[in-house]
Computed example of a mutant assay.
Amino acid sequence: MPDPADDKATARSRFVNNRRDLDYAERTRQSRAACARLLDTPRLSSADTVAAYWPLGTEPDTRPLLDALLARGTRLLLPVLLDDRDLDWALYVGADTEFVAGGAGTSHPASLVLGVTAVLQADVLIVPALAVTDQGVRLGRGGGSYDRVLERIGHARTVQPWACALLYEHELGTLPPSAVEAHDEPVDAACTATHLAEFGPASRPQDATRGRRG
């Protein structure tokens, strides 16, 4: 029987390489269009606090989104990678924010961290992803950081942030089910330059009833 981990590694490598094949101009075009589409959603229009990410490498560039949200007066949180790969959160206030180097090539605001549960204060969570299945299960880079965040949100008894992945066009609905494992967490939506997909409860291998949204 094929090992799902092998399928996942193959899929992850394919999506990483596909991103590298996109030239800078095309990545910029798609990122800006996806951010604009997301900004037009009622979820973002009504959000008081948004937790997002600072782009790393070839990830879709969130900076246009962050700038637009700041102009609206939205409170913004960015992740701080901890030694155990979990994510803490710190405030982002725009151009005046001082950044410091973090683990795994990341950078984050130098301001006081707010705690791993600060994400629960957000109305919206924008997450990085390499791909998302047509049922909303997310493939990350393999560190498990955002799976832990999404699981934490799913177990919260408060109102849960709406979690949306930002993707390039070829990354939505093209992740094979064989690359998904039971611990992979779903998102509520995924946004590309041309499409915003919202998902119901995501089905999982070995546990089709498990999901963050019931």
Results as ranks from 00 to 15, higher is better:
Pro64Gly: 07
Ala34Leu: 03
Ser45Gln: 14
Trp54Thr: 00
Ala51Cys: 09
Gly57Arg: 09
Asp48Asn: 13
Arg37Thr: 12
Gly57Asp: 04
Ala68Met: 05
Tyr53Met: 11
Ser46Val: 06
Ser46Asp: 13
Pro55Trp: 02
Gly73Pro: 11
Asp40Val: 01
Thr49Gly: 06
Gly57Lys: 04
Leu82Glu: 15
Pro79Ile: 07
Trp54Arg: 11
Leu39Ala: 07
Arg85Ser: 14
Leu39Ser: 11
Thr62Tyr: 09
Trp89Arg: 05
Thr41Glu: 02
Thr41Asn: 10
Leu66Arg: 05
Asp84Cys: 06
Ala34Met: 04
Ala71Pro: 10
Arg75Met: 13
Asp84Trp: 12
Ala71Phe: 06
Leu38Tyr: 00
Ala68Trp: 00
Arg75Asn: 15
Leu66Ser: 05
Ala68Leu: 07
Leu78Cys: 09
Ala51Ser: 14
Glu59Trp: 02
Leu77Ala: 01
Gly57Leu: 08
Ala68Tyr: 03
Thr41Asp: 01
Leu39Tyr: 09
Leu39Thr: 03
Ala36Phe: 11
Leu65Ser: 10
Trp89Cys: 05
Pro64Phe: 06
Thr41Met: 04
Tyr53Ala: 08
Cys35Ile: 01
Thr74Arg: 06
Leu65Gly: 11
Leu76Tyr: 07
Thr74Gly: 02
Tyr53Leu: 13
Gly57Glu: 10
Ala36His: 12
Asp48Glu: 15
Asp83His: 13
Tyr53Lys: 09
Asp88His: 01
Tyr53Ser: 08
Ser46Pro: 00
Thr62Arg: 07
Leu87Lys: 02
Trp89His: 05
Asp40Pro: 00
Asp86Trp: 01
Ser45His: 09
Ala68Thr: 11
Arg43Gly: 08
Asp84Gly: 10
Cys35Pro: 08
Ala47Met: 13
Asp67Leu: 12
Leu69Cys: 13
Asp83Asn: 14
Arg37Lys: 12
Leu66Cys: 11
Val50Arg: 11
Cys35Gly: 03
Ala33Pro: 04
Trp54Lys: 02
Ala36Lys: 14
Arg75Ser: 15
Asp84Thr: 09
Ala52Glu: 00
Ala68Phe: 02
Val80His: 05
Pro79Asn: 03
Ala34Pro: 07
Pro55Val: 06
Val50Phe: 12
Arg75Gly: 11
Arg63Tyr: 12
Asp48Tyr: 11
Arg63Pro: 03
Pro60Met: 13
Leu70His: 00
Trp89Glu: 01
Leu76Trp: 05
Ala47Val: 14
Ala52His: 01
Ala34Cys: 09
Pro79Ala: 06
Asp84Leu: 10
Asp84Pro: 12
Ala68Asn: 09
Pro64Lys: 06
Leu69Met: 03
Leu69Gly: 03
Arg85Phe: 13
Arg37Leu: 15
Arg37Glu: 04
Arg43Pro: 03
Leu56Ser: 04
Ala36Leu: 14
Val80Arg: 09
Leu70Met: 08
Leu56His: 13
Cys35Tyr: 00
Arg63Thr: 15
Asp67Lys: 13
Leu82Lys: 14
Thr49Ala: 09
Gly73Asn: 04
Glu59Met: 09
Leu76Arg: 04
Trp89Gln: 02
Asp84Asn: 15
Asp83Cys: 04
Trp54Ala: 14
Gly73Arg: 04
Tyr53Asp: 10
Arg43Lys: 15
Asp61Asn: 15
Cys35Ala: 15
Thr49Cys: 15
Leu70Asp: 04
Leu81Met: 13
Leu77Cys: 06
Leu56Cys: 05
Val50Gly: 12
